[in-house]
Design a protein around this nucleic acid. Structure first.
Lengths: 293, 293
DNA sequence: ATAATCAATCGATAAAACCGATTTAGAAAT
DNA sequence: ATTTCTAAATCGGTTTTATCGATTGATTAT
C-alpha cells in the first residue's frame, strides 16, 4: 500500500469513472486499473463493484476511503508543515472571496505582499456555494464570505464585521441623499439584481417574500462589475451589502430599514487541517486592517 | 512521498542508525540512505543532522515525524479495518422484508446475532415495490419477499419456500375448523384486505377477477398488525399467505382451494455487486433454519 | 443493428527501488 | 600522528515495478 495508490483510489472514488480519474491524475487508464487492482489484492476485498461498464463503491471501499483520505491528508499536512517551517518565504495561499468583500482582500493583499513578497496567491471569486465546495475539496485555504444559514461541523468560523443591506443607486438619482429607505419603497423601483446563485439575492428575496412585496426585478446578472455599470446609468437600482461598493465613486448606498437587514462577513476554513503559517500571517494582517475602516 | 519512505524514515528516527534501521527493514543500508535523501529532497529540508558519523534528528525531522507516523497509522488502521470486515467483526447488513415474512427474518436475526454480535442491522419493512426501489438505489443488500410477476435481468433470485394463500379468520368463527375453502365462498364473506400496494392484494384481486367474483371488501388498510387486530374481532376476514400469521394465537388460516393459490418466498439481491461476507453468513443461517419449519 | 464508451488485459518500455562494492570522513585506538 | 574502525554517502549494475499504448470484451446509447 502506497500513498500513490491511495490517491488514485480516492480520485476514482470521487469521480466513479476510471477514465476520467486517470485523466485527472495525468496517468493512463490502464495504469489506474492496475494500481486499483493491486490495492484490492492487498486488501483482499474489492473496493469497487464493476457492474458492466459502471463502477460503484463497495461497502469496504466506502469505509476504507475514510482511512485512505486521512492517511493522505496527514502526509500532505506534514509536507505543508515543513514547507512553512523552511522559510516563511515559500508557499501559496489560496483564498476564496465573494465579490462583495473584494476590498477587504485587496487591501490586505497589498500590505501582506510588501512584507512577504515571495508568497504566491490564488484569489478565487465565486458564490458562497462554489467557494464552499472548493474549500471542501482542499482547493482553498480559507474563504471570505457572508454568514451561511447552515453552519457545518467541520468548518471553523470567524466573524469579521457586519455590513447593512443597502439600495445601491447612482449618485445622480433624486433620492441619493436619503439616510435610509424601506423595503416597500425599494420594491417600487426598477431593480437589477445579482442572479440567484448569489447569497445576497437569496437573502433579499426572502425579505421581500416575508413582507409580501413584489419587487420589480427587470434584470438578473451574474457579474457584479457589469451590474454596477448598469446602475451607474441611473436606469436601475440594485441591492447589495454596503461594503460591496466601497471605493466606487459614482454610486451611493442607502441602508435598508428593518431589523436583520445586516449581514456578517466571515472567514471560513476547515477544522483539523494544518494551518499554513503564511495563511495565519495573512489573516492577521487582514484583521488588523478591518479596524481602520 | 510514499508510505514506504515514511516507514523507512520512522525506523531510522527510532534507531538513529541507518545501518541498523536498514537491517530491521530488511533492506540494504544504501537503499535506506537513498530513500531518506529522496524524502529530504522532496521536503527541501534535512530530516537528520549528519554530525560526523552520528545522526540526530533535525527540528524539521522531529516535527515531520508526527505527521509521518499519523499517515502510516491511518493507512494501517484502514488495512486492519478491512481485515475486521472480512472476519465479520464489523459491518452492516441492510435487509428489506415484506411483513408477511417477518418471522423468517426475526428467527434468523436472533441466531445470527448471538454468533456475530458486532454486526449492525437495518431492517426495513415495506411493500415489494418500495423494497425493490431501495435495492436498486443500493440502500439495501437483499430483500425478502414473494415472487414478482416481472423478473428483472439485474436481480439475482433465490427461492426459499412456498406458502398457500389462506383465508385468515378469528378462531371463534363457525367455519374456523374447515380444511380448505373455495374462492367463491371467500367472496361472500365480509373482507378487510391489505391496501393495493401490497403484492398479496394484487395477487388475490387478479384471482377474483379471473373467476368473475365480486368480493365484499369493506376495509383496505396498509398496516398488517392493525389489520390482524380487526380480524380478531370476528367481524371481518382477510386473505394473506399462511406464513404471515405464524405465531399468531387467536387467528386461523384456511388454505384457499385452486391451483396457483400458493406464493413463493424469495431472496432478491443485485447481480454483479460485491456480496458482503456478513450478508452471505446471515443468509446461510436464514436458509438453514427454514428446513426446521 | 451500429457506434460509442469504459474497464480489463497484454506486451513492451521507462522509471525507480534495490543491492554490493567502494569511497569518504569522523571517531577511536595505538 | 598514524592506523584502525565504523557508518553514511556514492557509484554502477540489476531487478522490480509503474507506466504506457494498443487491444479486447462487455455494456450502453443511438
Amino acid at each position: 500500500m502506497e500513498l500513490r495508490q491511495l490517491k488514485y483510489f480516492l480520485k476514482a472514488k470521487e469521480l466513479l469513472n476510471f477514465t476520467e480519474a486517470a485523466a485527472a491524475l495525468y496517468i493512463s487508464q490502464s495504469t489506474l486499473s492496475q494500481q486499483i487492482k493491486q490495492l484490492e489484492d492487498e486488501l483482499q476485498v474489492p473496493l469497487f463493484n464493476r457492474i458492466g461498464k459502471r463502477i460503484t463503491l463497495t461497502e469496504a471501499g466506502n469505509l476504507f476511503a475514510v482511512y485512505a483520505q486521512q492517511s493522505v491528508n496527514k502526509a500532505s499536512d506534514g509536507l505543508q508543515f515543513i514547507k512553512d517551517l523552511n522559510n516563511l518565504e515559500t508557499g501559496k495561499i489560496a483564498i476564496g472571496v465573494t465579490y462583495a468583500l473584494r476590498h477587504v482582500v485587496t487591501k490586505a493583499l497589498i500590505l501582506f505582499s510588501s512584507e512577504y513578497p515571495k508568497i504566491q496567491f490564488e484569489i478565487v471569486f465565486g458564490t458562497s456555494q462554489e467557494l464552499i465546495q472548493k474549500l471542501n475539496h482542499f482547493e482553498l485555504d480559507v474563504i471570505l464570505t457572508f454568514e451561511e444559514i447552515a453552519s457545518e461541523e467541520h468548518f471553523k468560523y470567524q466573524e469579521l464585521f457586519t455590513s447593512p443591506m443597502a439600495l445601491v443607486t447612482s449618485t445622480e438619482t433624486p433620492f441619493s441623499n436619503k439616510k435610509s429607505i424601506s423595503l416597500e419603497e425599494v420594491s417600487a423601483l426598477p431593480l437589477a439584481l445579482p442572479s440567484n446563485g448569489f447569497s445576497t439575492t437569496q437573502f433579499i428575496n426572502k425579505a421581500f417574500k416575508k413582507d409580501n412585496l413584489n419587487p420589480k426585478v427587470t434584470i438578473e446578472i451574474n457579474d457584479i462589475p457589469t451590474l454596477l455599470e448598469l446602475i451607474k446609468t441611473g436606469n436601475w437600482h440594485t441591492i447589495l451589502t454596503k461594503t460591496t461598493i466601497e471605493n466606487e465613486k459614482d454610486l451611493h448606498a442607502i441602508p435598508i430599514k428593518g431589523e436583520n437587514m445586516t449581514r456578517t462577513a466571515m472567514l471560513i476554513s476547515l477544522k483539523d487541517v494544518y494551518e499554513k503559517k503564511a495563511v495565519i500571517a495573512f489573516l492577521k494582517i487582514l484583521m488588523e486592517n478591518l479596524a481602520v475602516n
